[in-house]
């Protein structure tokens, strides 16, 4: 039904990112269903990256973050490994590299897939277009094909089996982009797309000086929790842009999303619709956020949020 499968893994100081290890889970499921083999492609340095995949295709390349060389390296690995399916995490970088890779290979690409099933020997990829208003199942008709997988759609592959590392030499094109990257200073270490719990503040927070109560709630919820915000909040510079969720910001799928002082505009909901549980705190009972909330608390967030924090701390 399909050849072998590769996952182009993203890795950083902590090893392979959890978003990529989630894609390993899908790769393993597909490999056992199709009888193919799967491997992780690691581009650049391999030391910090050998986690959780039985097989690693390592493509060394010059330092730098140029996405075209990344795509070319992945294309090379795909070719050598007899690949029918190429998977990446649907992160900002993953989506960008996937688009270049699909363009380079002249094959189809489904971005930001939220699931996958096999029906009568056909692999169907689930997507949630129109800001999550409809779901569609896509069949890919090219060989190979490329897909990216929305963070937190699968559990990360557990275990860290020792991997067989094959290093391959690829002639990579000279980069067309010069990229300099600057880590954002962050209060919290977890990326908003990777967090299991997201506490999000809107204009109802009234100003950046009030974010302390949200940070305390995050703290009380433990290490899986982090902060996000609505667009006007990041536009006003109250919070960094990396925390902005919605149509023009990040799309996230935490287990729990807590919206504090957010009205729930469609453009906002587009970024959070695939959250498993949504709690909303808003003093206006008619706020549209309550239409998508599983648990809505009508009240003043300056009372409700600290009360929740106290309750969590007091009842552990």
């Amino acid at each position: 039904m399909a050849g072998n499968i590769i996952v182009v893994a993203e890795h950083g100081e902590g090893g392979v990112r959890s978003t990529s290890r989630e894609v390993f889970t899908l790769a393993q499921e597909l490999a056992s269903a199709t009888g193919g083999e799967w491997a992780a492609v690691v581009i650049g340095s391999v030391e910090d990256a050998v986690v959780g995949s039985p097989r690693v295709l390592h493509v060394p390349r010059p330092a730098g973050r140029d996405p075209d060389t990344c795509a070319a390296a992945a294309a090379h690995a795909a070719e050598v490994f007899g690949t029918g399916i190429i998977l990446l995490a649907a992160t900002a970088t993953g989506k960008d590299v996937a688009a270049r890779l699909a363009a380079m290979l002249g094959v189809a690409l489904a971005q930001d897939c939220t699931g996958c099933r096999i029906s009568e020997d056909t692999i169907l990829l689930t997507r949630a277009p129109y800001g999550g208003k409809v779901n569609v199942e896509m069949q890919m008709l090219t060989d190979p094909w490329v897909a990216t997988v929305r963070p937190r759609s699968f559990a990360p592959l557990a275990g860290s089996r020792a991997a067989v590392v094959e290093t391959m030499d690829a002639a990579l094109p000279a980069p067309m982009l010069q990229v300099r990257s600057e880590a954002m200073s962050k209060d919290l270490d977890l990326d908003v797309s990777e967090a299991g719990i997201v506490v999000s503040g809107g204009r109802g927070m009234q100003g950046p000086e009030h974010w302390g109560i949200l940070k305390e709630l995050v703290d009380a919820l433990g290490p899986r929790a982090t902060l996000a915000c609505s667009r006007p909040v990041s536009d006003a510079g109250w919070r960094p842009r990396s925390e902005h969720v919605g149509q023009t910001g990040r799309t996230i799928s935490p287990d729990l999303y807590i919206a504090c002082g957010i009205s729930g505009a469609v453009q906002h909901v587009a970024g959070i619709a695939s959250s498993k549980w949504i709690v909303a705190i808003n003093r206006d009972p008619a706020a549209p956020i309550f239409r998508v909330a599983d648990y809505g608390i009508v009240g003043d967030l300056f009372e409700v949020v600290p009360a929740l924090t106290r309750q969590l701390r007091g009842s552990q």
Partner: peptide, 26 residues
């Protein structure tokens, strides 16, 4: 290079639980 095989509405969230904030809410 791709075809839509099915389109469907996402699971609609059940009518959420909504409360007015009070002493026991937290």
């Amino acid at each position: 290079g791709m075809a839509v095989r099915r389109a469907y509405l996402p699971d609609s969230r059940e009518k959420g639980h909504m409360v007015q904030y009070g002493a026991n809410t937290a």
